[in-house]
Design a protein around this nucleic acid. Structure first.
Lengths: 180, 180
DNA sequence: TGCGAAACGGAGGCCCCCCTCCACTAATCT
DNA sequence: AGATTAGTGGAGGGGGGCCTCCGTTTCGCA
């Protein structure tokens, strides 16, 4: 897992965190190619400071991305105690609610890079057991791979919906196709 | 239906068509905010010529968009003779195959504008009867609206897939949730 | 409190895009 | 063939993003 070292000095650490937060917002709003100068502005920091902490746009993006993935994988253990079908769908709903504001995760779903590969693995390690459990319990058809499933759901994150109710309705609809 | 008048003179008409084709490609590749100068370059035409034919980026986009929607709606009559379920899914597959290279259609799915509203209506008029027929025939559950369906499917167009086989598999999966 | 090192931030060079304007080119008409 | 005029295309000004560089500020240790 790639980790970026937080700076030592207090002021530097403050700026580092502000940048990370600003970047998260900016990437969510405008996708991977949000303006770096805008991110620095949002963080109340000079552009030079951004570049010192994150020499390339990629460095910044990865720092945000790793954090997101970690949270997503933590969510998997949180639902582990539910019944198989419920655990799976709860996690998938979480995935959607989560990724819908952070579409960079989706954009990156099949981008080439060691770092992405690692993160993808992390996500799969978290979610795949949920699917397998549901399949063993006979709740989900067995001709579906976790990759299929994730792509199905991730597609829905980028669709536009009239309101949250419609979004949930459509996701439920899609998941009904999974049932054994 | 908004229509752009093609120019009278032969050379002008050639340029007009080249611009439209170049724009279609560029929008497909880079989304709605493709570079206009790049479009002019692709068309082998000066930037001034682009602006004379299409004073705003929106004019250009609409010209492309209208054409796409027309083709999509024509596809609906082409499948009308199939059995209800097959007709519906055939059209939806067509929708995906189509929109996947032209994601601007999706981006525009709920953009505000009289012109978009008209085109949306055209698309709905084409596809909605297919759903209703399938529902009346008992092939599709009745608690699904055409809007739900279109958004479900349109989400899948923007998902990334390993290959076409996976895409078709995932779409079929999603559509299985529709069955009555 | 004083000092060295760490961190800051924005000016500036570069590049690409947007859009306008107008001297030039060539299609069409007679 | 020559005149008329629609049509061309690219230069250029403005704006904004990228990234580097370095004079200035601030931290935190002693």
């Amino acid at each position: 897992m790639v980790t970026v070292r937080r700076p030592q000095r207090a002021d530097a650490r403050r700026n580092f965190d502000a940048l990370l937060a600003a970047a998260r917002d900016a990437f969510a709003e405008n996708g991977t190619d949000a303006s770096l100068e805008d991110i620095a502005r949002r963080a109340g920091v000079g552009i030079g400071t951004l570049y010192r902490n994150f020499p390339t746009r990629r460095d910044l993006f990865e720092a945000v991305y790793v954090e997101e993935v970690d949270q997503l994988s933590a969510a998997a253990t949180a639902v582990a105690s539910l019944p198989p079908w419920d655990a799976l769908t709860a996690w998938l709903h979480r995935f959607v609610a989560y990724a819908v504001t952070k579409r960079a995760i989706i954009e990156a779903l099949n981008r080439e890079s060691e770092m992405f590969a690692t993160c993808r693995r992390t996500m799969y390690d978290a979610g795949e057991p949920l699917l397998e459990r549901a399949q063993k319990a006979g709740a989900v058809r067995t001709d579906v791979s976790f990759d299929d499933l994730l792509r199905l759901v991730s597609g829905l994150t980028s669709a536009a919906f009239v309101d949250d109710a419609q979004r949930d309705r459509v996701i439920a609809l899609a998941l009904d196709g999974l049932r054994a």
